[in-house]
Computed example of a mutant assay.
Amino acid sequence: MERITAAEEQIAHLVKAVEELSDVVAGQARELERLARRVGMLMEREAEREAMGNTIPLADQRPPHW
């Protein structure tokens, strides 16, 4: 009986750990989606800015230390 109780306690701890990890993963997924949207918006904004001017695209410019 004692072994069953110990196993049940371990299972309860494992279930709690899995639920906590699931919450962390869900939060990370939401953060990744938010960041992906922001990167997309920044890329669109930069493309519009580059299209408006006759300048060399930022990605093709040499760094200032060269």
Rank of each mutant, 00 (worst) to 15 (best):
M1Y: 12
M1L: 15
E2A: 07
E2C: 05
R3N: 11
R3G: 09
I4V: 09
I4F: 13
I4R: 13
T5D: 14
T5F: 13
A6P: 04
A6K: 09
A6I: 01
A6S: 06
A7D: 15
E8W: 14
E8N: 14
E9I: 04
Q10D: 07
Q10G: 07
I11P: 10
A12R: 05
A12Q: 10
H13T: 03
H13C: 05
H13M: 15
L14D: 10
V15P: 02
V15K: 08
V18C: 05
V18G: 01
E19H: 10
E19G: 07
E20K: 13
E20R: 11
L21G: 06
S22Q: 08
D23F: 06
V24N: 15
V24K: 13
V25S: 07
A26T: 14
G27Y: 01
G27F: 02
G27R: 03
A29T: 11
E31D: 03
E31K: 01
E31S: 00
E31N: 00
L32P: 01
L32I: 10
R34E: 00
L35T: 00
L35H: 04
R37T: 03
R37H: 04
R37Y: 05
R38T: 08
R38M: 13
R38E: 06
G40F: 02
M41C: 08
M43D: 15
M43H: 14
M43F: 12
E44H: 15
E44W: 05
R45F: 07
R45Q: 10
E46F: 05
E46V: 08
A47I: 09
A47F: 14
E48K: 15
E48A: 10
R49T: 08
R49W: 11
E50S: 03
E50L: 07
E50C: 01
M52I: 06
M52E: 13
M52C: 09
G53T: 15
G53Q: 14
G53D: 13
G53V: 15
T55R: 08
I56N: 04
I56H: 02
P57M: 04
P57D: 00
P57Q: 03
P57R: 02
D60Y: 04
Q61L: 02
R62H: 01
R62I: 05
P63I: 07
H65K: 06
H65N: 06
H65G: 03
W66P: 12
